[in-house]
Computed example of a mutant assay.
Amino acid sequence: MNTVTIRDFDPAHYLDSDEMIVEYLKATAEDPNPEVFLGALGDVARAKGMAEIAKKTGLGRESLYKALRPGAHPRYETVKAVLKAIGVELTFKAVS
């Protein structure tokens, strides 16, 4: 009998370019559930290297993991610092 191994899907394995990261964050930011965007931000931080992001933000690695875990409610300053560390900025446009 053949055995099939199923692994959990990890988006961080596919976030290998700045363009992919931007599109991923844009898509998740459109979801009405903010947990989706915050989860994606954690995926991107893991893809870029959590230790490197922690260093760039001035946060401890464990604090960063805690701030980006499911159900967390990170401060705006934390989200903004992580975005800056991964090389992404928020932009706004008028809705017509």
Rank of each mutant, 00 (worst) to 15 (best):
K84C: 00
E30Q: 14
P11W: 15
K55A: 14
L83R: 08
S63Y: 07
D16W: 01
K26S: 07
R61S: 06
V95N: 12
T78M: 08
M1I: 06
A27P: 01
E62N: 10
A81P: 03
A72W: 13
V4S: 10
H13K: 14
A85R: 08
T57Y: 02
V79A: 02
T28Q: 09
K56S: 13
V88C: 09
A54E: 05
K93G: 02
K56L: 13
L68C: 01
L83P: 03
K93T: 13
L64Y: 05
Y65H: 10
T5L: 15
K84Q: 11
I21W: 09
V44D: 00
K80D: 08
F9L: 14
P70W: 07
A72Y: 13
A40V: 01
A45F: 08
L64E: 00
F92K: 09
A51W: 00
V4E: 11
K66D: 04
D43N: 12
P70L: 10
F9M: 08
F9T: 07
L41T: 00
T28R: 15
D18L: 11
R61Y: 01
T78S: 06
L90A: 10
N33D: 15
D43I: 04
V36A: 04
A54H: 09
P74Y: 03
G87V: 05
A85I: 06
S63K: 07
E19R: 10
A94R: 15
K84T: 04
